[in-house]
Amino acid sequence: MTRTLLQWLGVAFVLGLVGLAAFALTVVKDRVRIVVQADAASTGPEPVVLLRDDLGVVARDLAELRSALGANLERLGNALEERAVARHADVQALARELAAVRQRLDAQAASLQRAEQQLLPRPEAAATAATEPAPVVAPPAPVAAEAAPAKTGGFLSFSLPATTFAFDREQRYQLVPELCRVGFDAKSTLHDFSGVTSQVAGQFTADFDDPEGAWRGEVTCEAGSLVTGVDGRDANMREYLATTEHPQIRFEIQRFVPAAGGVDVARQTARGEIEGRMQIRGVTRDLRMPVSVEVDASRRVVVSGQAPLKLSDYQVPVPSQLGVINMQDDVVIWISLRARVQVGDRK
């Protein structure tokens, strides 16, 4: 019984509370206003202003960094440039040293070759030795020291490529046109005259001390460039030489026949005859020309010589004016050539 009473009292209490709450709500409903506001402590400047300030600071930092970076980049560029200049100088110095080393090596190689040549018997000497009893005392080695290959080195602060000149060794020579002249001497009724040209080109290979004289090469001149000093005569000459059809006069060098005792290696001179094939007006004939060879102060080979020739052998008409002024069929052709060692094609 007590228990049921307590349950009823509980229910009644709850209902009472609910009723009291409902009553209170109706009483204070219009008197209560809820306002949400920040804490008093957080009051301060606008966030946008703060953000703007922050951006300003960041911008100043960036500007400082940019200027600092620019200065550093400039310093880096200058340093790189200085190093490049220094390296360029180093490379140039190395190149000069290499050139000097190369020259020394070439000189050593040349010396070695000369030593080998002096040690090895020459072919004719070997043949003689095979047929004759060996001499008790060996003959002295050929003296060619003064004429041995000349070596170039530095010259007035320039470093020169290694180039050698050897009178007694096979080398290729290139004509120096501005120092060459060829021509002919002719006789006529009125007076004697010469025809001359410097339009000469060519090259040849020669060992001036070679007893076999195995020279080879070619010399050409422009036939139309020959001048005699008289314009009318030059025009006639070009007609007679048919320079339009055969613009060049050619001489093919086939052999050099040294004169007896004509080669002096020490003095770098030679005398003898060049054998070859001369072509004038398209007609080719054998020709032998006595020549002399010497070496000038610039280490150029000077070849001079002359030989008689008949114009009729080359089907060149012999000029005649009115049957009175006649040119002789016999002329003398001559050469005055200078040639230098062709660098880069040494044999």
Binding site: T152, S298, R299, R340
Partner: peptide
């Protein structure tokens, strides 16, 4: 305008 001696072997103009 002129070079003589061994230097002339390799020198053409200065």
């Amino acid at each position: 305008i002129e070079i003589t001696g061994d230097a002339a072997l390799a020198l053409r103009r200065i």
